[in-house]
Design a protein around this nucleic acid. Structure first.
Lengths: 138, 138
DNA sequence: AATTTAACTTGTTTTTTGCAAGTTAAATTA
DNA sequence: TAATTTAACTTGCAAAAAACAAGTTAAATT
């Protein structure tokens, strides 16, 4: 039973989440990394959401500082940097999937591929395994 | 299989989510409604997070406008208003629980009651049923 | 050697937030 | 019943953050 009397979750998990990745742009960067295969600064920039260069740089730095993403020099083109989700970042997948599930239910306009949403509802673990495998290929 | 080639989820569910409840204060209000039994304007104000009165009023109005919460006059004291999660708001519970699970893993300071987190990991459906029942009692 | 690419940084304007004080309507108290 | 208190806001202003435009730097390409 959940105890409403224990006044506060002193270190509140929701507040913690918000402090680590809790703004629009951070969420969208995590989405890009998790589901869209984007990994370079300019791929995020050109994702079409309209983020400004300074804000992008700032959010990438924050996310890296919070251990949600990591930054590596590209081996082939050393002027490029590859951003990746860390284990901590990858662990946000259930939350992201829950959000996608929710949005698909309540937003007419949301266009998640039907087979994605079907898999999400019928066999979420399997979908997650597939997504994780894709992340490792990056 | 997730198709990375279908360039965009034209109506992106993550962007939709962010537009509906995607800022720190909205999240904290939803948390208060979902887990803490708070339902009056001044309970949110005094929750200790330090939200300003104008921002609280604004976020409540936005959440109501987005259909995530509803506002009713208190029957006993008609100068008070009761805020409640709608079905759409209640449906955010899996996302919130995923967030709590995540935070508990990665934040030393997070203090979720152990029996809550244990239940969340061992029998999430049952926990959710219990939480839903509590919401209906409000 | 000159240009282009990629990832930023800097300066300025605009928007949003935070803070303090004020308003309104209902309920309680004197 | 008049005066005070409670509850939920609104308003005005200062401070912080975001958006916009332009500039910098280092590496790679021409």
């Amino acid at each position: 039973m959940v105890d409403k009397k224990t006044k506060n979750w002193a270190g509140c998990p929701v507040r913690f989440g918000m402090s680590q990745f809790g703004d629009k742009w951070s969420f969208l960067i995590i989405r890009d990394l998790m589901f869209k295969g984007r990994k370079y600064y300019n791929e995020f920039l050109e994702a079409g959401e309209g983020i400004s260069t300074n804000i992008l740089a700032n959010r990438l730095a924050d996310l890296e500082h919070n251990g949600i993403i990591s930054k590596h020099q590209d081996r082939i083109k050393r002027s490029k940097y590859i951003y990746r989700l860390t284990e901590k970042g990858i662990a946000l997948m259930p939350m992201m999937l829950a959000m996608i599930d929710w949005a698909e239910k309540f937003d007419q306009q949301t266009e998640v591929p039907p087979e994605f949403i079907q898999k999400l509802r019928q066999n979420p673990d399997k979908l997650q395994q597939e997504l994780l495998r894709q992340l490792e290929h990056n």
